[in-house]
């Protein structure tokens, strides 16, 4: 059982952990501060930036004017949500099969699916690039959604499988005895029971898709570029404009950061991939 710990000991722990936590978080905090500064102020020494400069929203406006943030934002939303939902639709039946009707091959199939994640994207970059070029999918949201769906499918299947495994098979059998068809069993019993697990899976995949930067950089140009590519366009020489770079960065990561914080509990569950109890 938890033992009583002295306030002094607790304070020491808090100080150490707090300092380290703050250091981890500092880069994000720093660009948040810089994003509200003018370019001249942003490159001053850190203490001066903090204590002797004003605040402004100009950088945000400048970023939107320069490269149409909202277009990239909506690309990111469509691609990450689209690929996650599509992935779930394919993965739910597969995970159901493996969790509730296991066969001799189940474990092998699962390992094989996971092993497709081992295939380095760069190994298949050229063919995918050429296929996309020839089918007009290059620089399209559809193309990117397809790639990200397939890329994250093994993880979605894996996670759902671990969550489904936790649901006692007897409950599904009860539904079957109660006269539910397979569709009704999945719809009315399995899905509602697995909602926490599905939420975690969804969250994690939205984050992975949102932050995916290999395919998004290589398969898009102007039209379908999501925020990862939008930010990449700020590498030098614009990178020297700290305030604008900060504003653009904050705009790119804020949606996920906020979503992540509000759903911390589900996310922790998701992040552990159900593999750690």
């Amino acid at each position: 059982m938890a033992r009583a710990v002295s306030t002094k000991q607790k304070s020491i722990n808090t100080a150490i952990a707090g300092t380290l936590g703050f250091l981890m978080f500092f880069p994000i905090l720093w660009i948040l501060i810089l994003s509200f500064k003018t370019e001249e102020d942003a490159i001053r020494a850190p203490l001066e930036v903090l204590f002797s400069s004003g605040w402004t929203l100009d950088s945000f406006a400048a970023v939107q004017a320069r490269s149409d943030y909202f277009k990239h934002f909506s690309n990111s939303v469509i691609i990450s949500l689209g690929s996650t939902i599509l992935g779930l639709l394919i993965a739910i039946p597969a995970a159901w099969s493996m969790a509730f009707v296991p066969s001799r091959h189940t474990k092998n199939i699962l390992m094989w699916m996971l092993s497709t994640k081992m295939l380095p994207p760069v190994g298949v970059l050229v063919p995918i690039y050429l296929i996309f070029r020839d089918t007009g999918l290059l620089d399209s949201r559809t193309g990117l959604t397809i790639v990200l769906t397939l890329m994250n499918l093994p993880i979605i299947v894996w996670m759902l499988y671990t969550y489904f495994k936790e649901i006692p098979g007897e409950i599904l059998e009860a539904a079957r005895m109660d006269g539910a068809s397979l569709r009704e069993e999945v719809l009315y019993v399995l899905t509602p029971m697995a909602i926490p697990g599905m939420a975690s899976t969804m969250l994690l995949n939205i984050i992975l898709a949102w932050n995916e930067a290999f395919w998004t950089l290589n398969l898009t140009a102007a039209k379908a570029a999501p925020l990862t590519a939008f930010i990449a366009s700020y590498s030098s020489p614009e990178g020297l404009f700290y305030a604008k770079l900060s504003a653009a960065s904050i705009m790119a990561i804020a949606p996920i950061l906020i979503m992540g914080w509000f759903s911390q509990k589900q996310l922790v569950r998701g992040l552990t991939f159900g593999a750690v109890k």
Partner: peptide, 16 residues
């Protein structure tokens, strides 16, 4: 605070 960096996309963290 400790978790936060995980949410940052690679392009952003590299540039920052």
């Amino acid at each position: 605070m400790v978790i936060a960096p995980f949410f940052v996309m690679p392009t952003v963290s590299a540039l920052v």
